[in-house]
Design a protein around this nucleic acid. Structure first.
Lengths: 264, 264
DNA sequence: CGTGTTATTGACCAACATCAAACTTAGTGG
DNA sequence: CCACTAAGTTTGATGTTGGTCAATAACACG
């Protein structure tokens, strides 16, 4: 296991754009009223920057604040005896990866920045109060937790019943759509925000095998990649190779959008 | 894939004991007030009986009621192309396995009775209204969803990073504690409510391999079993073999209780 | 007693892990 | 601008876990 990367944390003040990204995440299910939006913009939001690979929260912590991803790409993970790691989920700007800490402590997993990231922190007390006061916000948060669980179930299916090629193709589709939803994925070559080793840790595979399967996918003309930069050459076939159906992400229009972007 | 079993449904009226089991589930986190308990006892609860292996809800359904397990052992599952099945979770009496359908439809997975079961159904509208009216109930439901997600994460770790022996030992521990929490597991031999094939479908293994590993566990003196009946001979070693830590189940005192029961 | 489901066994094989080394790339400081 | 370094990627050789297929045995139930 590699040493924990330095976390040079430059605390800073929340900007209006930060609240906007958070709101976009909360409103992905249904729009909020002007009042609710104002209530959220009024919450205290402590912002902290994290370097690539820095830990944001650690297994065992009992945080008194909830995290909101503002920039970058973040994952939850679990460490087990002797160097094994399982990545549990990926999160893009606007998402709140540790809502469960509102009720269940201590944290049974860590939260880590895969790319350089900025994360906001809201006190639990303020969120609890808001949930009691603003039913529509409570609903949005409930929905966010449920979507998170839906993604976890899809991963469960993948780890249990799909082979390496399917898993990798599936995850590329998922990440592409999630990044696309916040405007971070250019269809003609976007950057995968993780290494092959991290990909393996998410999919229950060794990095060696991930590498070999990626080469197959390139050879078959489904993707092209050089370093981290990845280009989806054939969305339809990649989707088929991964047995991918975007419904579980519950992104409005996600798959249609991808199809439109990728087949001009 | 076997044909869907007949579902001979004997609709019946909810008994006080049914509400009691449901309440016990909701109160596993924190007790409710007398008012809240009454509010729940006042909800309409349609009760239906299901035979072993009968489907309760199907993938693609958009139910207008939420299910409450009242008796028996139930699982969520996902079917994929050509006979593959992945079981996503197990549920014991008191649990509500499809809370996500309150916000996310259609259902991306089915719900099925592994043993003969009785299930209650509450209209979504009634639940939504109660959530708005009774904050403590809303909190209890939120907690239930979060515990469900916590279990899913643990399964994710197992499927991704544990080998067959660990997975099987782990699941036996889990099921024993869950059954014990509702008084359905006798320490000296309780009935595993599923076949070896179903165990494999939950753990991403073939039934053949499940069988072989179970024999190993018996040979090593961790368990004894004859047919479905299973006897945990050595809780400490079984726990170690499965790398099992009960915290993720969020059952109050679960592990201590098991230890006490099993080592007199 | 049949009949269907579940458990068990054996032979064989594919997918994927592990280990170790070489090669690439990007970043860093002189 | 160039060596130097560390991280990540690629390759090859080899071994293990667990899957598949197919047949048999043990039950459970009407």
């Amino acid at each position: 296991m590699k040493p924990v990367a330095e976390c040079f944390s430059i605390d800073s003040v929340a900007r209006p754009r930060d609240y906007a990204r958070w709101l976009a995440g909360l409103e992905s299910g249904a729009p909020l009223s002007a009042d609710d939006r104002e209530a959220i913009a009024g919450l205290p939001l402590r912002v902290q920057a994290f370097a690539e690979k820095a830990d944001i929260l650690r297994q065992g912590d009992a945080p008194r604040e909830c995290a909101v991803v503002l920039d970058g790409f973040v994952c939850r993970y679990r460490l087990l005896g002797l160097g094994q790691r399982q990545i549990l989920s990926f999160h893009t700007p606007g998402q709140m990866p540790d809502l469960q800490a509102l009720h269940l402590t201590p944290l049974d997993h860590g939260l880590s920045a895969l790319s350089a990231a900025r994360v906001g922190f809201v006190p639990h007390a303020a969120l609890h109060e808001l949930i009691a006061r603003a039913p529509a916000v409570a609903t949005a948060l409930r929905r966010e937790v449920l979507v998170d669980a839906s993604v976890a179930r899809e991963w469960l299916v993948g780890l249990g019943r799909r082979d390496a090629r399917q898993r990798i193709a599936h995850l590329i589709c998922e990440v592409f759509l999630k990044l696309g939803a916040t405007g971070d994925a250019d269809p003609d070559g976007f950057d995968l925000p993780f290494t092959q080793l991290e990909l393996g840790d998410a999919l229950g595979l060794s990095s060696v095998h991930v590498n070999r399967v990626l080469q197959d996918l390139r050879r078959d003309g489904l993707i092209a990649s050089r370093g981290r930069n990845l280009d989806i050459c054939d969305w339809a076939r990649l989707r088929a190779a991964g047995d991918f159906d975007a419904a579980y992400l519950h992104l409005p229009e996600a798959d249609d959008a991808a199809k439109a972007q990728l087949s001009p």
